[in-house]
Amino acid sequence: ELREAFRLYDKEGNGYISTDVMREILAELDETLSSEDLDAMIDEIDADGSGTVDFEEFMGVMT
């Protein structure tokens, strides 16, 4: 189920989504998050600083 959700956002099928897209997902899930909260969450999610979120990083957030 998580893989299907990931595929919805990984429109190009390249195995990752951008941190911008991940930020939008988080904002949709919790509309009360401030910009600073979102920045901090993205920094934590994208631990390797690649600017992308792969499936493993995505799973870590969603579980």
Rank of each mutant, 00 (worst) to 15 (best):
R3K: 14
A40C: 11
S50D: 07
R3S: 08
E1K: 13
Y16F: 12
D54Y: 14
S35D: 14
D10I: 04
R23S: 01
T32Q: 08
E31V: 12
E36V: 09
T52W: 09
G13Y: 03
M41Q: 05
G51C: 04
D54I: 07
V61D: 00
A47F: 11
A5F: 15
K11D: 07
M41C: 07
N14V: 11
E12R: 04
A40Q: 09
F58H: 00
D10V: 03
D10T: 02
D20S: 14
M59L: 12
T63G: 10
I42Q: 01
G49N: 11
T19S: 06
L2G: 04
K11T: 13
E31I: 12
A47R: 13
A27N: 06
E4P: 03
R3Q: 13
I25V: 08
L26W: 04
D39Y: 04
V21L: 13
L38C: 02
E56L: 11
Y16Q: 06
E28H: 13
D37P: 01
M59R: 10
E1R: 11
M59A: 11
F6A: 01
L33N: 01
D46P: 01
A5H: 09
V61K: 05
V61E: 03
E24W: 11
R23G: 02
T63F: 05
A27C: 08
V21H: 10
I45K: 01
G51F: 03
R7T: 13
G60T: 15
A47L: 11
D30Y: 15
E4Q: 05
M22H: 01
E44K: 14
N14R: 12
D39A: 07
D46R: 04
R7V: 14
E4R: 04
D30R: 08
L29S: 05
D20R: 08
S50V: 08
V21E: 09
N14Y: 06
L26F: 05
E12H: 08
T19M: 11
E57T: 15
D20K: 13
E28R: 15
S18E: 04
D54V: 08
K11C: 13
L38G: 01
L38V: 08
G51I: 01
D54P: 05
E24V: 12
E36H: 09
D37M: 12
M41L: 12
D10H: 01
D43P: 03
T32W: 08
I42S: 02
F55W: 11
S18V: 02
E56M: 09
D43I: 12
E28W: 11
E56F: 10
Y9F: 09
F58A: 04
M41P: 00
I17A: 00
L2Q: 04
L33S: 02
R7D: 15
V21Y: 07
T63L: 12
I25C: 04
M22F: 10
G13E: 07
D37S: 08
G60C: 14
M22K: 00
A5K: 15
L33I: 05
M41V: 06
F55N: 01
G15N: 05
D37Q: 14
D43W: 12
I17Y: 01
V21Q: 15
A40D: 09
L8M: 11
L8K: 15
G60S: 15
L8N: 14
D39M: 06
E31G: 14
T32K: 10
S50A: 05
A40F: 10
M22L: 14
E57V: 15
E24F: 10
L26M: 06
E1P: 10
F58R: 00
E12I: 06
A40E: 07
Y16S: 07
D39I: 06
L29D: 02
G60D: 12
Y16A: 04
E31L: 13
D46K: 05
D43K: 14
V61C: 10
S18T: 12
L33F: 06
E28S: 14
R3P: 04
V61T: 06
M22Y: 02
E28Q: 14
D48Q: 08
F58P: 00
S18L: 05
V21I: 12
E24D: 11
T52K: 12
T32H: 10
R7W: 13
I25W: 05
D48M: 07
G13K: 07
L29K: 08
I17W: 01
F6V: 02
E44G: 11
F58Y: 08
T52C: 06
K11G: 05
E4K: 06
L2H: 05
L2V: 06
G60Q: 15
R7N: 15
D20P: 04
R7A: 15
S35W: 08
R23I: 03
M62R: 01
D37Y: 06
E57W: 06
I17P: 00
G13C: 08
F6N: 02
M41A: 07
I45R: 01
T63V: 11
E36W: 09
E28N: 13
R23T: 01
G49A: 07
M62A: 04
L29N: 08
D37F: 06
S50I: 08
Y9L: 12
V53N: 00
E36R: 09
D46T: 05
A5G: 07
S18I: 03
A27F: 09
V61S: 05
L33E: 00
E44S: 14
R3F: 13
A27Y: 10
A5S: 09
F6E: 04
E31H: 15
F58V: 02
E36L: 09
E4F: 02
G51E: 03
I25D: 00
E28F: 11
E4D: 11
G60W: 15
I42K: 01
L8I: 11
S34E: 05
